[in-house]
Structures are given as C-alpha cells and as structure tokens.
C-alpha cells in the first residue's frame, strides 16, 4: 500500500488570539485523530516544521550560481507548518483520512501527495 504525504498549509494569523482553553480542545482533537490512525497502523510519520523562516536554495539559472536566502516569512499568508505521512490503499482512502484531520476544522488547508516508491 502506498504512502501519502499530507502537507499542512496554515495561515499564521489564525493563531494570533488562541487561548490555552482553545488549545486543549484543538490538541485533544488531533490526539484523537492520530490515535485512531495509529491504532489502525495507518500513520507512518509526521512532524511539525520549525517556526523559523527556513531557507530557499536555488540556482539563478540552470548550472548557475547557487543562492541561499531566507524562506517565506511566517507573516505570509500561507506556510507549511507540518506534515503527516499516512498509509492508504489509494487516493480515495487518503482523502477520507485527510477529511477527518482536525487541521481543516481549524482553518487550514491540506495538500495531499502520493509518495512514489520505485
């Protein structure tokens, strides 16, 4: 069965006024989701990405000088905050798993990609 990567896009401003009580509710929902997937053996990985800007490494032109610069600032509208890797039969099942992810309920967007195994 293939693995799928859920890239969690988020809008940082949604968190600006989060309260500890909100957090407990949000975290509880995620834990429930992760526990359910974990028990079914479908969750194979996932992590939060650091809140810093990251780096963009890019060649000016193919074969040209490589440049390193700061990545998109967290002030931008859309950043990838983290990812999960799930094991699913096909896109349909992976989409069903994504639909249940609390990330959507809290205003986030999920980009779903199948990991190609040669």
């Amino acid at each position: 069965m293939p693995d799928y990567m859920l890239l969690l896009h988020e809008r940082p401003e949604l968190f600006a006024n989060v309260t500890p009580d909100d957090m407990e509710r949000v975290i509880a929902k995620y834990v429930e989701w992760r526990t359910k997937l974990g028990a079914a053996g479908k969750l194979t990985g996932g992590n939060k990405l650091r809140d810093d800007a990251g780096r963009i490494i890019e060649a000016r032109s193919p074969g040209g000088r490589v440049e390193v610069r700061d990545g998109p600032f967290t002030e931008t509208k859309d950043v990838i905050g983290g990812y999960f890797i799930v094991n699913a039969a096909d896109y349909d099942e992976a989409i069903a798993i994504s639909r249940d992810c609390p990330h959507l309920a809290f205003g986030g967007r999920i980009e779903l990609r199948e990991i190609e195994i040669p």
């Binding site: 968190f15 975290i27 995620y30």
Partner: peptide, 17 residues
C-alpha cells in the same frame, strides 16, 4: 508566552505533548 503557546499548539498537534 503567547508565541510559546502557539508554537506548543502546533508541535503538540503533531507529536505527543
């Protein structure tokens, strides 16, 4: 502390607190 809470929220949604 608010920033730390937001960071914690995002971390603990992915891994156990």
């Amino acid at each position: 502390v608010q920033d730390a809470l937001v960071s914690a929220l995002k971390a603990w949604t992915h891994v156990d607190a």
